[in-house]
Simulated assay, not measured.
Amino acid sequence: MSETATVSSRISDSFWRRPTILLLLLVTPPLLWLGIVYLGSLFALLAQSFFSIDEFTGLVRYEFTLKTYAELFRASNFDILVRTIVMASAVTIASAIIAFPIAYYAARYAKGRWKAVFYLGIMLPLWSSYLVKVYSWKLILAKEGILNWLFETLHLSWILQAYLAIPVVGGNSLSVSWTGTFLVFVYVWLPFMILPVQAALERVPPSMLEASGDLGASSSQTLRHVILPLALPGIIAGSIFTFSLTMGDYIIPQIVGTSARMIGQAVYQFQGTAGNIPLAAAFAVVPIFVMGIYLTLAKRAGAFDAL
């Protein structure tokens, strides 16, 4: 036996006798990556948010202060926070409403090839370029787009124009309105809601649904008291994706929607063109804080017990 083979055999024997050492060697690199790169960057971000910008020199003052967080409550900045949270909530609710019947059909009725078609249909949009999807929707929602053409063909343009005339949700066209931003967000993040809900519904035993019917429950009662509570972990898991991704995204509001900013755009602009890194860091902390509260409430409600 060669010397190399002998050394390898001894090392293998050592790992076999001491599995703890092998476990430490396997988990140390990812733990270092998580602890230094990921958590380290988050702590650095948190530290930056407690600094401020000198109004005269424009340089960062490395002195502990809550002044930057106080700036978040200025009217213009607070509007950004409210606008983002409302949009993220609306996208999450709409995604859950759309995803549930799709996921329920896939979990209870789709079999064989149809289930493969379902997975392909859900995953296929995720394989295409993010920017291509967003710009495609911008063309669809534009005044010269196919959606406007469809309304004109059906002689329903007056409905679209009446809707666009509504303050806040309307605009010159859907591509420069909050409705357009909402539609694109729902389209892009919908797969992240469907898949967890479908996985949760597949774990619901058919015998439980049969027992509910045998006990005299109607279809609506079974849905409300049996299916929805058991599907809640999947809905919560999907909402984590849709809510957090909507709050942090800055590309979709930049391409589709009005000139009013969301948190992602504010972070991008303050740390880039404005050079106000402390305020950008304070804005970036808001989604972390909101998601922390959300996850805490979901855990207390027992939404993660079946995950």
Rank of each mutant, 00 (worst) to 15 (best):
N148S: 11
F151V: 06
F151S: 01
E152V: 13
E152P: 11
T153R: 13
L156Y: 13
S157Y: 08
I159E: 10
I159F: 12
L160Q: 11
L160M: 14
I166A: 12
P167N: 08
V168T: 13
V169L: 13
G170A: 14
L174S: 03
V176H: 08
S177K: 05
T179A: 13
G180N: 04
F182H: 05
L183H: 09
V184A: 06
V184M: 05
V184H: 03
F185W: 10
V186H: 04
V186Y: 06
V186S: 03
Y187L: 09
Y187V: 05
L190V: 02
L190E: 00
P191C: 09
P191H: 07
I194N: 08
L195V: 04
P196K: 06
Q198K: 15
Q198V: 00
A199I: 12
A199E: 07
A199W: 04
R203W: 07
R203K: 15
V204D: 03
V204I: 14
V204R: 04
P205N: 11
P206F: 06
S207W: 09
S207F: 04
M208F: 08
L209P: 00
A211V: 03
S212L: 02
S212G: 08
G213L: 13
G213F: 13
G213H: 13
D214W: 09
G216I: 03
A217G: 12
S218D: 13
S218W: 09
S220I: 14
S220D: 12
Q221G: 08
T222A: 11
H225E: 15
L228I: 10
L228E: 07
P229G: 01
P229L: 02
L230C: 05
L230R: 07
P233R: 05
P233K: 02
G234D: 01
I235S: 05
I235R: 00
I235V: 12
I236V: 14
I236E: 03
S239P: 00
I240A: 08
F241D: 06
T242C: 12
S244N: 10
L245K: 14
L245Q: 14
T246Q: 04
M247H: 03
G248V: 04
I251C: 10
P253R: 00
P253Q: 05
I255Y: 08
I255W: 02
I255S: 06
T258D: 09
T258L: 11
A260Y: 12
A260M: 13
M262Y: 06
M262A: 06
G264M: 06
G264H: 05
Q265C: 05
A266H: 00
Y268A: 14
Y268K: 13
Q269F: 14
F270E: 11
G272W: 06
G272R: 09
G275Q: 09
N276Y: 10
I277A: 10
L279M: 12
A282D: 06
A282G: 04
F283M: 00
A284F: 03
A284T: 02
V285F: 10
V285D: 07
P287G: 14
P287F: 10
I288E: 01
I288Q: 09
I288H: 07
V290P: 07
V290M: 12
M291S: 07
